[in-house]
Write a protein that binds this DNA or RNA. Structure first.
Lengths: 112, 112
DNA sequence: TCTATAGTTCGATTATAATCGAATATTAGA
DNA sequence: TCTAATATTCGATTATAATCGAACTATAGA
């Protein structure tokens, strides 16, 4: 099994982070991880098939937004909160607050 | 002459803002506007031709990041700082600080 | 009215990415 | 050792966007 690559904190690029966060599906995933802490892929409900989810997960991981660890047959995702705060102070917080108050999630998840 | 469309403050979408900011050229433009205030297109040096600049300018305007006003033959660009602060508190500030401290601009502007 | 200046629009090209379904890999447990 | 569960990878398709050069628009000023 290939070891999953995570960029070092210092190698996290601002434009990559902003790009990763600019997709509604990925924003939703990030928001969910922020609320719930660590989550398995399967327990995050998004309106895309598994392979597409996997693609988004990878985009988030390679941009440095999330950490992925293997547990049995599952992959557990979590936000790299500390790394991001060190690298770009205040950024993640303001994005998450903006997301919660902006109704962006309504773009693809009608209920809630 | 067509009146330039600017989205109302309440219509500014988070994902669109993040997307607009995820391009190195646009980040550079936004950073320049933040430092200098209002600037004409021609006075912002970017490594792209005029038509490409115009495309980026439009992307920023339609996302709600900048205001464009006409003065003679020039278009003057400025950041919608207040609107953004009201809509997404702290977001623009943290992005600009992250940009200044991250060396992202080195991606296409070697000197400085 | 003519010309120079400042930008935009258009069309074409190229690159990137979002999405899906099918096939594959890995692990847990019977 | 089979099978089920969980997720990734691959290939194809479609959509979006970054870029350029050429043509165009609008305004200022001679």
């Amino acid at each position: 099994m290939k070891p999953l690559h995570h960029p070092d904190r210092a190698d996290i690029q601002l434009s990559s982070v902003l790009y990763a966060l600019s997709d509604p599906v990925r924003l939703y995933i990030v928001s969910g991880l922020h609320r719930a802490g660590e989550l398995a892929c399967g327990s995050i409900e998004v309106p895309v098939v598994k392979s597409t989810f996997s693609h988004h997960s990878r985009t988030l991981r390679e941009a440095g937004l999330i950490r992925v660890r293997v547990k049995g047959t599952q992959r557990l995702l979590s936000l790299r909160t500390e790394d991001l705060e060190e690298r770009f102070p205040g950024l993640l917080k303001s994005v998450l607050e903006a997301y919660d108050s902006s109704g962006d999630k309504a773009a693809f998840v009608p209920e809630e």
